[in-house]
Simulated scan of single mutants.
Amino acid sequence: MTRFASICRALFLISAVAATLSACNKGTGADGAAPAASGPANAASAPPVGVTTVTAVQRDLAVELTATGTVAPLSSVDMRPQLTSVVSKVHIREGQFVKAGELLFTLDSRTDEAKVAQAQAQVARDQAALADAQRQLTRSRELLAQNFISQGAVDANQATVDAQTALVASDRAALAAARVALGYARVTAPSAGRAGTINVYPGSAVQANTTTLVTITQLDPIAVAFSLPQRHLADALAALPGGGAPVSATLPEGASKLEGRLKFVDNLVDPASGTVKVKAVFDNPGGKLWPGAFVNVAMTARTLKGAVVVPQAAIIQSARGDIVYVVQDGKAQARPVQLVHAEGENAAVTGVQAGDKIVLDGRQNLRPGAAVVERSGDGAARPAGAASSAGKKASAP
């Protein structure tokens, strides 16, 4: 009896194993592998996904670059004397705006005035000697014509005249040099600008090419220096011959905004940062831009003509690249796109056409081929194909 029970138990286990294997074979293919479920088929059989859409539009999109710039004067000159002397008079005040050629300082010039007078006297003396030599030459030529003197005497007089003429020319050059030195006693502004701190006063001794009297800084026009990424170097260089790309500068407090033009691109790309230094020039009649100040700079590098623009938030980064979901016949279709340029909330892309309905909200719940139902701004469901108010706002240029 015990043996019979053991045999029955063994037969029961064999039957159970056979039933299990049969059930497994029904769920596998001929090669023993489970058949993969079709993604679009499952997506199509799933309930519709609520989404909001926007319409891709075609328009011109400006490629605008933003950076932090530093205000820099076009010229800033440290005024130094060109002779060692003493300041006689200061003709300007600190912070005064001066014109080109305006007198700034007068130095003690009595020594140079005496040198000019001495040079003038030397010129007068040598001119008198030259006049006498010329008379002697004329007389010797008359005597030579009458055969009273030899040709050698005439030649000697001619040499005296030539030497005296050269001496007078040398005296005049010395007089001009003395006048130049005398002119250094008057320190004038090389260009229009604003005077900074005055470092000397009447009676101050100054050293030639060493002592800084004052700094004259040009404020109008003025420049703003900033850096551009290397990828935009070609756009900046292309814009220079046409007057430069438009650039706007805004003070940090946002009180004022000035418009200028790109005027300079450096000849070297910084290998550490991958940027190139550039300068834009601004009219600054009110002195709103001050040297050394920081400003927010925006420059239009170029304009993408007829670009297809979609909201940047609608772009999904996948393992195979960027995609967007397009609603077509009530279903979501994945479209690979290539980002051309992103500007704020908008992005110019290729891979979709103007008028395509792009999924904005709800894209994270979609699969290719999934049925969709569009929602209005208040969350109410609407038939696929109706334009949502949220989509209209997002796609507005």
Rank of each mutant, 00 (worst) to 15 (best):
P252A: 03
A272E: 11
K99M: 11
V359N: 00
S140Y: 06
V309W: 05
L258H: 02
C8K: 15
T2H: 12
T138H: 09
I198K: 00
A301T: 07
T160N: 13
A185E: 01
V326Y: 08
A36P: 07
S38T: 10
G254F: 09
A33N: 13
A178E: 04
V180K: 13
A176Q: 00
A117Y: 10
G101D: 10
G95C: 10
S38L: 01
L65I: 08
N267Q: 13
V49G: 01
A307I: 07
A156W: 14
R110G: 09
L258D: 06
A380T: 12
K288G: 06
A238N: 13
A156Y: 13
R110D: 12
N25V: 11
A347Y: 01
Q230L: 09
M299G: 01
I216T: 06
S318I: 15
R375M: 11
A121L: 02
S376F: 03
N365Q: 15
T300C: 03
R186W: 09
R335L: 02
P221R: 13
N346R: 09
S88L: 00
T303R: 13
A10N: 14
A394Q: 10
V17S: 14
L213P: 00
T210P: 06
R110Q: 11
Q312A: 09
I316R: 10
R172E: 05
A178N: 06
Q151A: 15
L74K: 15
R179M: 09
V324T: 02
P252R: 07
A238T: 08
T215R: 14
D112R: 01
G32Q: 01
A173E: 11
G260W: 08
T250F: 03
